[in-house]
């Protein structure tokens, strides 16, 4: 099979970042610093949504199949 049909790409490893980071409570399990009245626990986990979107978008763009011929 030609390589361009494969799902394999080093960019895929990036997807581990938004999987691993939200699973580390020591990063966000705290009240301070607050943002707009939100404790860190809440605003940082909401910010992880943006991290997830950024990563999947980047990986998508970098692994998009080029139309052949």
């Amino acid at each position: 099979m030609p390589d361009d049909k494969s799902d394999r790409s080093p960019w895929n490893w990036l997807l581990l970042v938004p999987i691993a980071i939200p699973l580390m409570p020591f990063l966000f399990n705290s009240d301070e610093p607050r943002l707009l009245g939100f404790p860190l626990f809440y605003w940082l986990q909401i910010a992880f949504i943006a991290l997830g979107v950024a990563t999947t978008t980047l990986v998508y763009q970098m692994t998009k199949r080029r139309r052949q011929r």
Binding site: L16, P18, I19, G52
Partner: peptide, 12 residues
């Protein structure tokens, strides 16, 4: 919230 963040990269 973390559940629905990590699910998309996992199933990508």
């Amino acid at each position: 919230v973390p559940y629905t963040v990590i699910t998309y990269p996992i199933v990508f």
